[in-house]
């Protein structure tokens, strides 16, 4: 049985706590769905948009965003793309395996503050849907606290789509609009084709009432932000989740730094007004 021993003096910010892999299911060629629980029995205590550092003993540690809502108790979910050493090892793990978890770290989508009472526009490209799913689930769980919910999703090909069944459930909620596009269609796809920004003009927003949340590949941000500004969504109503190499999660190692900002501590979720003048950010 794996246990973590506390440090001699004070808290060791690098010491993971043990977690158990409950479930793993392949989703696409590259991504798999994982369910974990902390051995201590406590809930992870995250908010939508936060991430953890996941340790595979003998392989290493990688930052992974939490994909389930904190309203789901007893376990938490992640969708992990096979990209490096740690994630490749994770894809090979069996249920029952013990891993290490540090976190949750960073800022979250403002589901508990400025989003309340507002129309919410989620814009997700590729695996950007993974952290945003946590916020979508949270908002739909507390449906009465928000106005209209608009979800715009772009994926490379139909085979890369994540949470396809869940999307159908989202559509059935009251006042939920879900628009989807793929970059390249195949014979199975009857929906829209093209980049995600082509869907945005189709969304009817009431700009002063709308909060926009964006997460996707680095290239997507500038195009989506420009489109939102055209739609007259105020800068302070735009929130972006950034990807960087968040090695330590505690603002020390330097890898995720953008100018004076540490993405692991000051982000990964930023208000657009805090990063629009920051070079190298978008």
């Amino acid at each position: 049985m794996i246990q973590s021993k506390p440090a001699m003096e004070g808290k060791d910010i690098y010491l993971p706590e043990p977690a158990k892999l409950l479930k793993v299911e392949p989703l696409t060629r590259q991504e798999a769905f994982f369910e974990f629980t902390l051995l201590s029995g406590r809930d992870l205590g995250h908010l939508p948009g936060q991430f953890v550092e996941l340790s595979v003993p003998g392989i290493g540690e990688a930052p992974i965003s939490v994909s389930s809502s904190p309203t789901v108790r007893g376990y938490f979910e992640m969708v992990i793309r096979r990209a490096g050493n740690v994630t490749t090892a994770l894809h090979r793990m069996e249920p029952g395996s013990i891993l290490g978890v540090r976190g949750p770290f960073g800022t979250h989508f403002p589901v508990d503050t400025v989003m309340k009472g507002k129309d919410v526009l989620f814009i997700c490209g590729g695996i950007g849907l993974v952290p945003v799913r946590s916020a979508i689930q949270y908002v739909l769980h507390h449906r009465a606290d928000y106005g209209r919910v608009m979800i715009v999703i772009g994926t490379k090909t139909p085979a890369d789509r994540l949470f396809a069944e869940e999307m159908e459930k989202w559509r059935k909620h009251k006042q939920v609009t879900l628009l989807e596009t793929v970059d390249r269609r195949d014979e199975t796809w009857t929906g829209a084709e093209g980049v995600i920004t082509r869907l945005l003009p189709l969304v009817q927003v009431d700009p002063p009432k709308t909060i926009a949340v964006i997460c996707g590949p680095p290239i997507m941000y500038k195009f989506v932000v420009v489109e939102l500004i055209k739609m007259k969504v105020p800068d302070e109503s735009i929130f972006l989740s950034f990807e960087r190499h968040m090695k330590c999660g505690v603002g020390k190692c330097g890898h995720c730094q953008i100018n004076g900002i540490y993405v692991c501590q000051d982000g990964p979720v930023f208000n657009f007004t805090d990063v629009r003048e920051v070079e190298e950010a978008i």
Partner: peptide, 15 residues
């Protein structure tokens, strides 16, 4: 920083 094995991860400090 840490040692790992059958007992999980443990902190290593230079005292």
């Amino acid at each position: 920083l840490l040692r790992f094995g059958a007992r999980g991860y443990e902190s290593v400090l230079d005292t």
